[in-house]
Amino acid sequence: MEKSTWTTKVGLAQMLKGGVIMDVVTPEQAQIAEEAGAVAVMALERVPADIRREGGVARMSDPELILRIKEAVTIPVMAKVRIGHFVEAQILEAIGIDYIDESEVLTPADDRFHIDKHQFKVPFVCGARDLGEALRRIGEGAAMIRSKGEAGTGNIVEAVRHLRDILDSIRRLQALPREELMTAAKELGAPYDLVCEVAETGRLPVVLFCAGGVATPADAALVMQLGAEGIFVGSGIFKSENPRARARAIVEAVTHYRNPQILAEVSRGLGEPMRGLELEAIPAGQRLAPRGW
């Protein structure tokens, strides 16, 4: 019997496919998420929209809060650590968290290096804006990738940009002859063996979710049609007028993302979505997506 193999790490992400992972800040929100059909919850102290508004250093959440959320639900519980903060990751592994998000939403702890995720038994998900970044994270041991988007904005444009960028680069690699792949790897800043694998299979070696800006069932279906295998919703649910109804509707939209009749039905009467931010309104220094190296 072998525990925590690469197959079991990637496998949990495969089980989450076609599903919605929801940010929650209390055990009550976690229960609302579970009842709405979330496949997992992300336990944290503040959703990205509040982190953005309040500023300051954003760190791993108090393990006490994470454990209370874990006790409130039966679905997998994820939690975030700062980029490069391997001790926060050790703590989350020690309390039996199911997946760790090494996340640009928190203030980075290391401005050059990410965590060596192969050293951990618990699997990691990491954000990426492009294929090179995704493959660097997988090279470090990430067992799941999410396109970053711009968290806490309720604006889907960056999520679409990053998802398209990753998928376009994969399609381009598939068209290259073998002798051009080393230069492609150099230009992407990605490990050569992973570049060859992607060129051959036409997909990332791990599951690809979309994050950062989903606020409506239509947003969710948009990124699914573009090629995401599931979605993270941060502020989009619990910053809306009717979180219960919106959570359910987004879950249903991810299942029936190619069925406009059902999308129309689930989108009706959900109340106000989260307010949302224009990207131009965010000063360059306060953007979250560029964090990560």
């Binding site: 079991t8 496998g11 949990l12 038994k121």
Partner: peptide, 30 residues
């Protein structure tokens, strides 16, 4: 989720005569 959190997920070989004489690789995830 009978084995505990994700870090307890595992792979093993199982004898399943209904399926064949060679053991089956079985992946248990939560």
């Amino acid at each position: 989720n009978a084995f505990g959190p994700q870090i307890e997920s595992f792979e093993t070989e199982l004898e399943i005569p209904a399926v064949g004489s060679e053991p089956v690789r079985a992946v248990f995830i939560r």
